[in-house]
Design a protein around this nucleic acid. Structure first.
Length: 108
DNA sequence: CTATTGACGACAT
DNA sequence: CATGTCGCCAATA
């Protein structure tokens, strides 16, 4: 059950839906995700959208980071985000994704 | 309808 | 490389 209880806008649902396509062990960016939903400049809005998400690793909101490879935020705290990523092989060093360009998943 | 807010991004210092 | 600014977009008050 992916907690798709309502109260979310179409935009938010669309964002979460695309986000689910990010494979484990990889990461994407708010920008790439924004482009995937059809609004290239809505990276910020995307961040707000995933923030409201029902969370739980069901929707891999922990695999979304800044376009420059920095960690970005997380509703459960940055520590949890790092833990989750580490559990699937993605290492974070000094707030940055290690080998970011190699494990980056672009929706494009 | 306007103002504020925020898990962003690109660029200038 | 480390700040600071400004622009963007959707959601909310």
């Amino acid at each position: 059950m992916i907690g798709y209880n309502i109260k979310m806008t179409d935009f938010e649902l669309l964002v979460l839906r695309k986000l689910r396509l990010v494979p484990k062990g990889k990461v994407t960016s708010y920008k790439s995700l924004a482009r995937a939903v059809g609004v290239p400049a809505a990276a910020r809005a995307v961040g707000n959208a995933v923030n409201k998400n029902p969370d739980a690793p069901v929707v891999p909101c922990h695999r979304v980071v800044y376009s420059d490879g920095r960690l970005g935020g997380y509703a459960h705290g940055s520590v949890m985000k790092i833990e989750l990523l580490a559990s699937e092989g993605v290492m974070v060093k000094n707030g940055k994704i290690v080998d970011f360009d190699k494990i980056f998943f672009d929706f494009k």
